[in-house]
Design a protein around this nucleic acid. Sequence first.
DNA 1: ACGTTGTCAACTGTCGACAGTTGGCAGTTT
DNA 2: AAACTGCCAACTGTCGACAGTTGACAACGT
Lengths: 217, 217
Amino acid sequence: MTPPTPLHLSLAGQAVDVLREQVLTGEIPPGSRVNEVEVAQKLGISRGPLREAIRHLASEGLLQLVPHRGAFVPDADSDEVKALFELRAALECAAAELAASRRTDVDLVRLHEVSAASRSNYRTGQPFPYRLDLAFHQTLIDAARSPRIAEQVRLVQQRVVLLRSALDDDPPHQHASMDDHDELVKAIEDGDAARASTVMRRHLSRVCAQMLTSLNR
Amino acid sequence: MTPPTPLHLSLAGQAVDVLREQVLTGEIPPGSRVNEVEVAQKLGISRGPLREAIRHLASEGLLQLVPHRGAFVPDADSDEVKALFELRAALECAAAELAASRRTDVDLVRLHEVSAASRSNYRTGQPFPYRLDLAFHQTLIDAARSPRIAEQVRLVQQRVVLLRSALDDDPPHQHASMDDHDELVKAIEDGDAARASTVMRRHLSRVCAQMLTSLNR
DNA sequence: ACGTTGTCAACTGTCGACAGTTGGCAGTTT
DNA sequence: AAACTGCCAACTGTCGACAGTTGACAACGT
């Protein structure tokens, strides 16, 4: 029934995927603890691979390890939000600059596509899905063609997603975000690195400010 | 003789420290493989904790994991150097800006101290010790007061150290670096964020360029 | 009643052994 | 001689069990 290891991913790797999903969706709520034996049984694996999965997620910042106590889903506080967005700004502003000087025509097409998808979603009157916001930033990062920066941005954005689930944050104001995004695309299209960086910084500080208000209520 | 676990750090934690040292000093040369049973015996621990140590170092970028093959010390190539310095520039330029706006008087004193130590070392005619260069950047990062950025910078700098051992790089030109550092301190002292960022970028691209020349020989 | 101390269950840290996979080597075939 | 095939040793991936630590509860003393 259960093949030993013929699957493409090791048990530890599969456990990482499952656990990451559960942490990001809030299925394992912030502040709660991850019991090794319990989760191992639930996943049908032994503690060894599960421990490796836990350590891996900890290195991504999705879990906090406490010696002899276990792994906890990190809780949100305002200092953490600020520090995280400072890091995010450092990375994404740099990415915006690089994108402005390296973008190809395909990159521009993709950016316009994502932007159009957001506008079209806006007309439906539904709340702004994070998916579209993430897609935009992801597309921009790819246009920067800097693998290590992209890697770090992905990790930071993951942590932002976790913070949002912890805060049950309101979706970002779609209108303001769309305008920011369009302005970013324009700057990148023009190859104006300085302006791309400035707009990105303003965009992120706006999003950060909104998350901080969600925190205080 | 060997106490079970009364030490402050777990066996895995100790293994991380020992292995990190061995990787960074080149005692385990780039390109070579880490045999789990062999190293575990050498450290007097079992494979479990050692595996966790290996995974941890892999998450820091000091080892590369290949499924069913093991862990390897990453080798240096020019693309990797460029990508890494793009990330480093993104982080340290941001840190320089933040330092310019947040630095306290103690920060300035410390920066001047490190700078003076470099000058004093220069007069001895000895090669520029990386230690002093690292100390300067470390001090600057601390002045930025952004814990997450500091954390990432530390990881990146660690990888740079590894690259240097892989390239048996010449020490950076102390004279040029000292001038850059002094200019940085001045900009931070003046609270001139834009200039601090610019100088940092120029400094890093200079260091990067030199590493690239070391690579091609 | 409150603080203190001793005990205990639950959990993490660690270990040794087994199973599966990988890369290489020897033997065979053309 | 070169290429292919099958086997084998070495190593990683995984497991179950034991040892040590932690936090909490209960019993005791003040």
